[in-house]
Amino acid sequence: MILAPRLEAIDLWFAYEAERPALRGADLVVEPGEFLALVGQNGSGKSTLAKHLNGLLRPVGGRVRLNGEDISGVATGQLARQVGYVFQNPDHQLFSPSVEQELGLGPRYFGLPAAEVEERVQRGLERFGLRSIAQRGPGTLSFGLRRIVSIAAVATLQPPVFILDEPTTGLDWGSASHLMDHFAELHAQGHSVILITHDMRLVARYASRVVVLSEGRVVGRGSPQEVFRHRELLQAARLQPPRIVELVERLVISGMEIEGLTVEAACRSFLTRYRLKHG
């Protein structure tokens, strides 16, 4: 079992351009081992907030704490051992002439012994189904594969906390759910996962807690259930719950006892009731 650290961002302020602050007093707590979804419209500050958690960006106001310790004096290269970050665009994070070397890059930056690097690379190739393309140049792969390689290359760092910045954009549902199942497994082993996404179906299926950002501030937080029910919040953050949530709500209004945020859950819930009726 992995013991992930507790991350805490307190009243963060940050601006890429002085005239337009990207964060305006954002607060966030990531409890050890939680699967947190960070949602909000384009430009609401999700990535900017997440990049403070491993020191990629340093706030102009506010603090970030890792297990209670202020990280302002800790180098990003060091924080990388605790918090792994998968960036939005795979093309911004592929540096090596082969997939194999790409997977080993982080562990080598860490200065791990060669045998350990090799072992992690081999496990990563296996795990993400990249064995057959281990010698290919990442640049020659399809978008979907480049994305998987970029994720595998962070996974070999084995950080207790993963930040995934829109990891499924451009992937089909098959690859996306395969990938997310992998992180659900890591989560079950104790890793914390912070998922930045627009895909509310992923939120419903995987996240245990949702934090909603709007214009650089946290405007809502709660379980997916609570957030999807909060009409004004959804409106303000320009979010839309999955279709199945809409259906379940309609059924509840019509007097049925049914629940579930995913197809599987709603299906089970309805069958329990349906079979009861039929005795």
Binding site: Q41, N42, T169, L239, Q240
Partner: peptide, 13 residues
């Protein structure tokens, strides 16, 4: 060609 893939839910709508 995937005109809504990189958009937030409201943008998609």
């Amino acid at each position: 060609d995937e005109p809504t893939a990189s958009l937030d839910p409201r943008g998609k709508l």
